[in-house]
Write a protein that binds this DNA or RNA. Structure first.
Length: 567
RNA sequence: UGGGGCGUCGCCAAGUGGUAAGGCAUCGGCCUUUGGCGCCGACAUUCGUAGGUUCGAAUCCUACCGCCCCAGCCA
């Protein structure tokens, strides 16, 4: 054990951290950072990064993780997003303590450093247009061409850069570029832009600046200033690493290590910021927190727990291979968490009226029900029973197939915590033939759900007393997309082609037991045999609205599917 | 046709020269007042392919194949 190499059994990022600790590379420090750009809401992919960065900090004595807003582009960034990001990181259960930073805090320092690079002949003001710069950059297989402004004198560069900062030039007319190598096979090294002119006011610095630093010129130096040890980002930044290193070296400043890992992908889900914004702005969903959205706030409203999301992030691991995780994995983590903590309750989504013929008309009684069989400390409650009930329509079949062992004519089943009932008749609508009511008898000796004679029953159904039930709205969600990988499109296809038209189903008249009367938005329950549900903020004192967080595993549905396929 | 990465079970993912962990999914069985939960069992003679080195290779070498990323004054 003790002679194992440091990092054994850990993911490769944690292994690097462990190795660095073992060799004392950073004087025993572990400092990470989560650096979102405040131009959108956080999604489950960010959760992976958050759990990685904050997780590593937590796991190591004295470690810390900074929350830093990468706010270098005033055109796209807004305060609304910084607020939501902080809320979501906190909700996920992480705390950045005093370490809240903004890249814009470093604008002065970055400006000084730019002057330093100009003085050392490592940066120059370039007057080429956007189109010219693009043309000069060359292509993947052809080298670039040096700008005709590349050899300006230090004095001229200094003067021009100062005038850029003073607002004397038009947007797009000039940029500051690093003088690296137009022949570099890595395009990012072909004299990358450091500063561009943007006459936009910034959400934090206001109108102080009209030149703004680019990501590459900002990120590494921000890490450096904060004493970050491990700068963890996603794979697409791997090719930026030489530039990250170049700036730190050219500036001769503290140089953190950038490490790249594969971003999260989920089946039946799109996680690109661009797509998410379009879903919201095009009204394809009802806002960032629509329970169908893979955003943190969407999951929150849907009823997911931060524990489940963290557990998911822990289980999927961290590696460098592109991957797409199955949504079932996430749902498994969710069910496992909710199973332990969600109180059980009875709710009928698609009501079918049942009249117990031999039950006295005006009688009602209170039956004992367990709140959570997984946790005795959650206690018990009373549920009212009476002559007229509702059961789930799908729990009855007039002509049941093999293996269907719920209610059918002449068959006896148990009503959970109540009585055994036997179906004696079916009432249909004269015109449509639709079943509108079941006639049943009950066995008074089976009160509570057990038969004194030891008689067994194949099924236990959930139910609700019609006279006592609360009418509620229930929203059922399915995958937002019909395609496993909606990002993988053929020529001419649009991701919108794969939007699932049935991703939201509203059930306006469901019935739940009266104990739910005081449920508050955010409260989570298991509707026995149906799934986990949570109270939506759209609820009113008159009518509760529930979101189905996730259905229970449904073995019967799998059997039905198999039977269908067998035909 | 340049450069940077990556390829281990349907999906994730351990494995760092000594003879393929684990989770999800799936399939059996047990249990059950949730067809839920739980429990038991099955599930890669094989690690992109082909050679080579070695007593021994998923791990080392060579070649090939496939996938991803890079030509924003976005991050």
């Amino acid at each position: 054990m003790s002679n194992e190499r440091p990092g054994a059994g850990l993911d490769f990022v944690r292994a690097i951290v462990a190795e660095d600790l073992a060799t004392n590379k950073w004087d025993g420090r572990v400092v990470t950072r989560f650096p979102p750009e405040p131009n959108g809401y956080l999604h489950i992919g960010h959760a992976k990064s958050i759990c990685l960065n904050f997780g590593i900090a937590q796991e190591n004595e004295g470690g810390r993780c900074h929350l830093r807003f990468d706010d270098t582009n005033p055109c796209k960034e807004e305060q609304e997003y910084v607020d939501s990001i902080m809320e979501d990181v906190r909700w996920l259960g992480f705390d950045w303590g005093e370490h809240l930073y903004y890249a814009s805090d470093y604008f002065d320092q970055l400006y000084e450093w730019a002057i330093q690079l100009i003085k050392e002949g490592k940066a120059y003001v370039c007057d080429l247009s956007v189109e010219e710069i693009r043309a000069h950059r060359g292509t993947l297989t052809e080298t670039g061409t040096e700008s005709r402004y590349r050899e300006r004198s230090v004095e001229e560069n200094l003067e021009l850069f100062e005038r850029m900062r003073a607002g004397e030039f038009e947007e797009g007319s000039r940029v500051l570029r690093a003088k690296i190598d137009m022949n570099a096979p890595n395009m990012h090294l072909r004299d990358p832009v450091m500063y561009r002119i943007l006459k936009a006011s910034h959400h934090r610095t206001g109108d102080k600046w009209c030149i703004y630093p680019m990501y590459d010129y900002t990120h590494g130096q921000s890490d450096s200033l904060e004493g970050i040890t491990h700068s963890i980002c996603t794979l697409e930044f791997e090719i930026h690493r030489p530039l990250y290193d170049w700036y730190c070296e050219a500036l001769r400043i503290y140089h953190p290590q950038q490490i790249e890992f594969a971003r999260l992908n989920l089946t039946y889900t799109l996680l690109s910021k661009r797509r998410l914004i379009e879903l919201v702005t095009e009204g394809l969903v009802n806002g960032w927190d629509d329970p169908r959205m893979p955003t943190i706030c969407g999951f929150r409203r849907r009823g997911y727990t931060p524990e489940a999301i963290r557990d998911f992030c822990k289980r999927i691991g961290v590696a460098k291979a592109d991957s797409i995780n199955e949504i079932e994995q996430l749902e498994h983590c969710l069910r496992e968490d909710l199973n332990k903590r969600a109180p059980r309750v009875m709710g009928v989504l698609d009501p079918l009226r049942v009249v117990i013929e031999n039950y006295p008309d005006d009688q009602e009684e209170e039956l004992d029900a367990i709140n959570n069989p997984e946790d005795a400390s959650m206690g018990a409650r009373k549920v009212p029973f009476s002559k007229v009930l509702y059961i789930e329509r799908e729990d009855f079949m007039e002509d049941p197939p093999r293996k269907f062992y719920r209610l059918a004519p002449g068959r006896e089943v148990r009503l959970r915590y109540a009585y055994f009932i036997t179906c004696t008749g079916v009432v249909k609508d004269e015109n449509t033939g639709e079943i509108v009511e079941l006639r049943c008898t009950y066995d008074p000796d089976t009160r509570g759900g057990d038969a004194p004679d030891g008689r067994k029953v194949k099924a236990t159904l959930h139910w609700v007393s019609a006279a006592h039930a609360l009418e509620t709205e229930v929203r059922i969600y399915e995958h937002l997309f019909t395609k496993e990988n909606p990002a993988d499109l053929d020529e001419g296809e649009d991701w919108r082609d794969y939007l699932n038209p049935d991703s939201l189903q509203v059930l306006p008249a469901c019935y739940v037991e009266p104990s739910l009367a005081n449920a508050k938005p955010g409260d989570r329950f298991q509707f026995e045999r149906k799934g986990y549900f949570c109270v939506d903020p759209d609820s009113t004192p008159e009518k509760l609205v529930f979101n189905r967080t996730v259905a229970l595993r449904d073995t019967w549905a799998n059997i039905q599917k198999a039977q269908q396929q067998a035909k």
